[in-house]
């Protein structure tokens, strides 16, 4: 992922992780292994490859919600 991640995006993602992730959960993301809440936040702060992936996933979801794509898919599966 080559797109530059702004500090405001990082802050948004860190806030989401801090407020939504219980400490007993870990995120498995390929060969990066199982990441704890603290490790996820650390990677996002550093802006390294893992941090960029985490930010990308958050932003991708938010964009899908904002564009209406997410709602359309959810409606389609409810009606399907």
């Amino acid at each position: 992922m080559s797109a530059k991640i702004s500090e405001s995006m990082k802050e948004l993602v860190i806030t989401k992780i801090e407020s939504h992730m219980p400490s007993h959960l870990k995120l498995s993301i390929g060969s990066y292994g199982n990441l704890s809440k603290e490790e996820m936040i650390e990677h996002v702060k550093k802006g390294d490859e893992i941090g960029q992936q985490i930010v990308r996933v958050h932003m991708s979801f938010l964009k899908a919600v904002a564009s209406g794509e997410f709602a359309r898919k959810m409606v389609s599966v409810e009606n399907g």
């Binding site: 992780i17 407020s19 992730m21 219980p22 996933v57 958050h58 991708s60 979801f61 959810m74």
Partner: peptide
């Protein structure tokens, strides 16, 4: 749909990963 309806702090993160 299931995790969002169920709610809970983690539902948003689960939905994001599933969406990915």
């Amino acid at each position: 749909n299931k995790v969002l309806r169920r709610g809970g702090n983690e539902s948003f993160l689960f939905a994001q990963a599933l969406w990915n």
